Amino acid sequence: MYQDRLHTYSERKGKEKTNRHTRESQALRDVRIFKKVTREEVAKLIGKSKETVKKCEDGRSNFSPEDQGILLRRFRYTKSEFKQILEGELVIPKLPARSAYKTTRRDPKEYRKYQKIISKESRVLKVLRRRARLSQPDAAKLCGFSRSMIDHRESGRVDLTDKLDEIRHIVHSYGQKMEDYYDLLNSEVLRDEVIDNCLAILETISDDKLKAVQALLENFK
């Protein structure tokens, strides 16, 4: 049950000041926080400043009956329900004031490590690794990385746009030259990648289709 209470404190100049926390101000504050409504929103609703709302909730002032009616409509409580809150018949959980403010944390899946944006740089690094006949674990050992670091760079989970020093380190660790890297980066077609993709497809088709593909390829000799 809410009760009127007095709070006395000393100001900086040594004066004592008393705030009167009415039942209504305490209850309206708790309801506001429970409904996740900020002081800024309340201030706009009743046409007052945020500081005035704070004074009302702190007991230095009081909400007028008209303001109370506006807030109850916003909180979707009737006057009879608000009376039940004041009498303790309807219990409102007491939450921290920060609960009224909505968090703005990003969805973790929005971060780059949860996305796969495979750039040309990522594809070239994979081609160079396969040319060196290295598995990802072997490549990781040569680079001094973990296997997941190699995988994330090849699968597009890491943006390589501004990581030239890291790319150079990886290329040299594979025993390759940066000239090879730039040649592949500037080429229209990554032959190694196309051949690997074709081989992967050939392994899945039936014998009849495989013979047909062979006959087709014979024409390009």
Score class of each variant (00 low, 15 high):
Arg112Phe: 08
Asn219Pro: 00
Cys198Trp: 01
Thr18Ala: 02
Lys116Ile: 08
Gly156Lys: 08
Gly14Arg: 08
Cys56Ala: 14
Gly69Ala: 12
Thr103Val: 11
Glu179Asp: 10
Glu81Ala: 11
Gln68Met: 13
Ser135Tyr: 04
Ser80Thr: 14
Glu57Leu: 12
Lys163Asn: 12
Cys143Arg: 10
Ala132Asp: 07
Glu203Ser: 14
Gly144Lys: 02
Lys116Phe: 14
Leu190Met: 12
Cys143Asp: 06
Phe75Lys: 11
Tyr9Phe: 15
Ala132Gln: 05
Arg168Ile: 15
Ala43Met: 08
Lys116Ser: 15
Lys13Met: 06
Asp162Arg: 12
Ser25Ala: 15
Ser148Met: 04
Lys50His: 07
Asn186Pro: 04
Val158Tyr: 09
Gln176Trp: 02
Asp208Ile: 02
Arg129Ile: 15
Asp165Val: 04
Thr8Ser: 10
Ser173Gly: 04
Thr22Glu: 07
Asp107Lys: 06
Ala212Met: 03
Arg32Glu: 03
Arg23His: 00
Arg60Ser: 14
Arg131Asp: 14
Tyr111Phe: 13
Lys13Ser: 11
Ala140Arg: 02
Arg131Lys: 15
Gln136Ile: 08
Asp4Asn: 12
Ile167Val: 12
Lys15Gly: 04
Gln84Tyr: 04
Leu216Phe: 07
Lys83Glu: 13
Val31Tyr: 01
Glu51Val: 14
Thr103Asp: 08
Tyr2Cys: 07
Arg23Glu: 08
Asn19Ser: 14
Glu193Gln: 11
Ile92Pro: 01
Asp30Ala: 15
Leu217Asp: 00
Leu45Glu: 09
Phe75Thr: 04
Glu51Ser: 13
Ile70Cys: 11
Glu66Val: 11
Cys198Thr: 01
His7Gly: 03
Arg12Met: 05
Glu51Gly: 09
Arg23Thr: 03
Asp67Cys: 09
Lys126Tyr: 06
Lys13Trp: 00
Thr161Ala: 10
Glu66Phe: 15
Glu87Tyr: 03
Arg105Val: 10
Val158Trp: 01
Arg105Phe: 11
Ala139Asn: 04
Arg73Val: 10
Arg39Pro: 08
Ile85Leu: 07
Leu28Gln: 02
Lys15His: 03
Val124Ser: 08
Ile195Thr: 10
Lys35Ser: 07
Asp30Cys: 07
Tyr182His: 12
Leu210Ala: 12
Gln176Phe: 01
Pro108Asn: 05
Val171His: 09
Ser25Tyr: 09
Ala200Gln: 04
Glu121Asp: 09
Ala97Arg: 14
Arg60Asp: 13
Phe63His: 09
Thr78Ile: 06
Thr52His: 07
Ile205Met: 02
Lys83His: 13
Lys109Ser: 13
Asp165Pro: 01
Ser25Pro: 09
Asp208Ser: 05
Leu90Gln: 10
Tyr111Arg: 06
Ala140Leu: 03
Glu57Tyr: 14
Arg76Gln: 12
Arg73Asp: 14
Arg112Pro: 09
Glu16Tyr: 08
